[in-house]
């Protein structure tokens, strides 16, 4: 789906759904996940359909993932760190931990 045009300076390892991936150091998490083949990152609230990164700038909330145990983080606003553990597949109804308004 996507490819790297510029070779990264270094690599780090992140775990996505329990599997280790070598990704570019400092890369945006949503980019790293697309490159690792994860097109859908969570499921929609009502119909349970897969959603992937859409706006890339923090406005659409489609790229929410769990990072090191913290739920509903916007993957497009986070950079990868060595040892980061990411979980996909949250169904958005699980936003119960947050206060919408």
């Amino acid at each position: 789906m996507f490819r790297r045009l510029v070779e990264p300076a270094g690599h780090v390892t992140v775990t996505i759904d329990g599997r280790p991936f070598s990704v570019a150091a400092g890369e945006t998490l949503s980019t790293a996940m697309l490159l690792a083949g994860f097109a859908g990152l969570r499921r929609s609230a009502r119909l349970g359909r897969e959603r992937g990164p859409f706006c890339g700038m923090g406005v659409c909330f489609d790229c929410l993932v769990t990072i090191d145990g913290a739920a509903n983080r916007q993957a497009c606003l986070v950079r990868v760190r060595d040892g980061m553990a990411v979980q996909t597949g949250t169904r958005l109804a699980a936003l119960a931990d947050t206060v919408p308004e």
């Binding site: 789906m1 996507f2 510029v6 980019t31 097109a39 959603r51 992937g52 990164p53 890339g56 700038m57």
Partner: peptide, 23 residues
């Protein structure tokens, strides 16, 4: 809403920040 559909701005941000392009 399908994965694989994104905005042009999102793709441009991936290009600028990470040097990544569609394949």
């Amino acid at each position: 809403t399908l994965p694989g559909v994104m905005t042009a701005g999102a793709a441009q941000t991936m290009l600028k920040a990470d040097g990544v392009v569609p394949d």
